[in-house]
Structures are given as C-alpha cells and as structure tokens.
C-alpha cells in the first residue's frame, strides 16, 4: 500500500491535475509547489500522450503543448525526483496505457517507486485489463487506481472490491472538461462503493468552481480538478504558479468547512 491514504486523513481531499511540461517542466515544478503551498492533498501529474481519447479540448491542447516542448517520460521522472526533495504529499501519474507499455511496465513502475510516485491512473485500462500492469504495480508498491463511471452500474461493487489507493469517480458522461452542471446521481454510486470498500473516493470531471468542489466533496471524500487549472496555465504560461496558488487556495478553503 502506498501513502495515498494520507491525503484523505482528517479532511476532504483537494486533488489538482497538472499536465507535465505544459508549457515547460520548470513551470510545472513551480505549479506543483504552489499547489502544495495552497493546501492540495494529492497531486495528479499528467504524462502527455499524443492521442488522449478521454480528454476534452482543454487537456488535449495541454498534451500537445507539452509534447511540442520536448517533454518525455524520462524528463518527467527527473521532474518528480526534483519535486520529491521538498514535496511530501502523495503524487500519482495520470497517463495512457501505451505510455507505460512502450516504456516497459517493469521499468516504468520501478522508476515510479524510485522517484516517489504513489499511484497510477490509466483511463484506458478498465477492470478487465488490469492484468496488463497490476503485477508490476504491486512489485513496486504503486497503487493502480480504478475509475468508476456513471454507466458502471453492476460493475461498481466488482471494481470497488479490488480498488487500491483511491477510487476516481467520474462525475458525468463524456470526456474531461468544465461543466456548468453535474446531474448524475453520485450519492447512490458512492453508497455502493462504501458498501464494498474502505478505500476513499474522490470525484472528478467537470468540476471548476468552489461551490461544485464543496458539493462533490460533501458526497464523497474529495474533488479532482483538471481542466480549470489547465486553463489558468494556458492563459498565464510561465507566470501560472501564482495564479494556480490563488485558485487552489480558494478550492481548498471551500472544502475546509466540509465535514470529513
């Protein structure tokens, strides 16, 4: 088991998603440190992929910017090594199966373990295909994080029973991106998850405002925000860390009042 559980100890977790190398790795390091200072509980680091099929336009564009800047998996391991000199909170990677597969699952997860990555989120690796990487994850003590979607229905209990790290509950249909309203009956999904596991559950996809974060965290254990942060980075570029700090602070403050 990794350190991910610590992100949920005694409070609701705020989890920012940041695409590594957008606009460059130095800025990414500054953004991660700003998010940590602002009170983030866990950092989700995106390794860019050329064809991210689960992402909306905002994160697709971030992937392209990062790859155009010459970002590679090896350079990202270097970033994590640097961040781990002072960043103590859990960090997980979010990427696509081919990035891990082409690197070699054993080498990839060995490097995760050496540099200090706690978990791995692969949106194109459903329950049935976990066998691809689970042995390497367990060998190096990296949690393979499961996603549950509004369409999961009878699959929820099966996924929850084998979940590790935390459960990533997808708030709504579609790809990542800001939404004005989230209408899925998430309470009943969370209820089934709770009946099947003690692993914590955070909600992501479509969350951008403090009100949405508070609402999502109140029915689960935390909120994950990606596109809204990527938009700030897209707008401010290398000046983004200060702006991300303000944004993450406002989101963490919003969760402060929510009962753990």
């Amino acid at each position: 088991m990794s350190n991910i559980y610590k992100a949920f100890e005694g409070r609701k977790a705020f989890i920012p998603f940041i695409t590594c190398g957008d606009p460059d790795l130095e800025t990414t390091a500054g953004i991660v440190r700003a998010a940590v200072r602002a009170g983030a509980s866990l950092i989700e680091l995106g390794i860019p992929f050329s064809d991210p099929t689960a992402e909306g336009e905002v994160i697709q564009a971030a992937n392209i910017r990062a790859l155009s800047a010459g970002t590679t998996t090896d350079k990202i391991f270097g970033l994590v090594r640097d961040l781990r000199r002072d960043v103590k909170i859990p960090m997980v990677f979010m990427t696509y199966a081919n990035v891990v597969y082409s690197y070699g699952a054993d080498d990839f997860l060995s490097n995760c373990s050496k540099t200090g990555i706690d978990g791995l989120i692969l949106p194109d690796l459903p329950f049935e295909e976990k066998g691809e990487f689970i042995d390497a994850c367990h060998k190096y003590g990296v949690d393979l994080i499961s996603l549950i979607a509004p369409t999961s229905k009878y699959r929820i209990s099966m996924i929850a029973q084998e979940a590790e790290g935390f459960i990533y509950l997808v708030s709504s249909l579609g790809v990542t991106g800001v939404r004005s309203e989230i209408s899925t009956d998430l309470e009943s999904i969370v209820k089934i998850i709770r009946e099947n596991t003690d692993i914590k559950c955070a909600i992501g996809f479509g969350i951008s405002t403090p009100e949405q974060a508070r609402k999502m965290a109140s029915i689960s254990d935390g909120a994950i925000v990606g596109s809204a942060i990527i938009k700030i980075i897209e707008r401010y570029g290398s000046k983004a860390p200060d702006h991300v700090y303000e944004y993450v602070k406002s989101m963490c403050d919003a969760l402060e009042g929510t009962a753990p």
Partner: peptide, 26 residues
C-alpha cells in the same frame, strides 16, 4: 491477477482498453 478476464484476444492482441464509461456499452 487473472489474465483470463480480458476478452476478445487474438493471441496477445486485442482486448478492451477503453474508458470505464464505455465498458457496459461494449
């Protein structure tokens, strides 16, 4: 880990590497 969970294999190829949102649809 049980590899036989994966469906639709042609030797080592095939499978269902898609988002959870689509799993029930397939």
């Amino acid at each position: 880990m049980k590899d036989n969970r994966s469906r639709g294999r042609f030797g080592q190829h095939g499978g269902q590497y898609i988002p959870e949102t689509l799993m029930n649809a397939v």
